[in-house]
């Protein structure tokens, strides 16, 4: 299945902005972030097709996953 991964803010550093990946059925968000060297604790916002998801959410063909790090400064 094909899934579009979008990274935001500092997650783009040394990685990519957007990438389409070929993934096997049953892949969850955690399986996507591990090879990217992103820990689940570093995920502040995780959107699957624009809706709230988390590291355990299972992906489907055609999905778009958007991942954001915590931004807390003032």
């Amino acid at each position: 299945m094909r899934v579009t991964i979008k990274l935001f803010a500092t997650f783009r550093d040394g990685r990519f902005k957007v990438e389409e990946q070929d993934l096997s059925e049953g892949t969850c968000v955690l399986d996507v972030i591990q090879p990217l060297n992103i820990q689940a604790e570093e995920l502040a916002i995780c959107l699957l097709n624009g809706k709230d998801a988390n590291e355990h959410t299972v992906l489907n063909d055609g999905d778009t996953l958007a991942l954001f790090p915590p931004v807390g400064g003032g």
Binding site: F8, A9, T10, E41, E42, L43, A44, I45, D52, P69, P70, V71, G72, G73, G74
Partner: peptide, 29 residues
């Protein structure tokens, strides 16, 4: 804000937008 990046929005009573956006994750980047 953090580095080159930022987020902003408006939360009116009952929205709980901030807890949705900032309720997860560790210390900010």
């Amino acid at each position: 804000i953090a580095g080159w990046f930022g987020q902003l929005g408006v939360s009116l009573p009952g929205d709980f937008s901030v807890s949705r956006l900032y309720g997860h994750g560790e210390r900010g980047v």
